[in-house]
Amino acid sequence: MTPTAPGSRRLVALAAAGLVAATGAALTLAPDVEPARSANLAGHPTWGDDDIPGFRANLFALPEDDLAGFVPIPAGSFIMGSDPSVDRMAFAVERWSRTALQGRLDLDDFYMGRYEVTVAQFVDFVRRSGHRLPDDVVLGTEPLHPVASVSWVDALRYARWLDEELRASARTPAPLRALLDDGWRVGLPDEAQWEKAARGADGALFPWGDDPEGGSANYASGRVEPVGSRECACAYGLSDMAGNVWEWTASPYQPYPHDPSDDGRTAAADALWVMRGGSYQDDIQQVRAANRGGADPGARRPFIGFRVALVHD
């Protein structure tokens, strides 16, 4: 056996202890493997009450009215789909069934957002919730522009978050709080709700009526506008139901007749979700109230945004 010096033994013992201690420390300090949930909006502007007239910076940048921008849409039936003999711009996917060109659906009452969700509202959501967006997504810096480049999932997450925040906030207006306490919740409108809100009960081709030239909407302009920029005698007083940005809905894309209880039948297909309203890039045919667009739920495009609704379970 080789004799060893006491000093050498001490060195080895120290080295061994050091390695063991370092191993323990490393493992103790090892961070949990979990996805980060924060989004980086460093450098993005923040807006105060005076910066966005008509909107409340201290209430998630929502509109200044008793229902924070939600507009009641009364219960009752409406005409869904298109009759090509009346609407010569109709697409085949707007036909109701083999035997009927259009359908009549009876909907419960609900509340539709007057405006498309704005950049200020969505930035507030991202800041507060830490919702992550891909690095290449640019939300824009104009607070009243409709938010765009958001996926269907982003839109749904925003709606869920807003619902929770409005329930928790002391600043939520009493009428809105009463609705929330009564079982209403913030969500995306399904495509029937969206279409009724856009064309009214009588099946108008556009939010302002049947005449393509009879109203004002932001389409074929090549650029987005602040929400509510256009004066419009539109159904239920809603803004930008035609043009500006496409709007995600809570409906999977599938052939008519529309029946939300059938949504599960789309499970085996590749995901495709309905968007409505056309955008600033599109022509008049695309901004008709009955037009149906479909997009990949992960699509983030500068011409796709959304609006929220209050619906009752």
Binding site: S151, V153, P252, A268, A271, G298
Partner: peptide
Amino acid sequence: ACELRFQPACL
């Protein structure tokens, strides 16, 4: 999963 177009996840 939904953004990757898996419809059951969206539902």
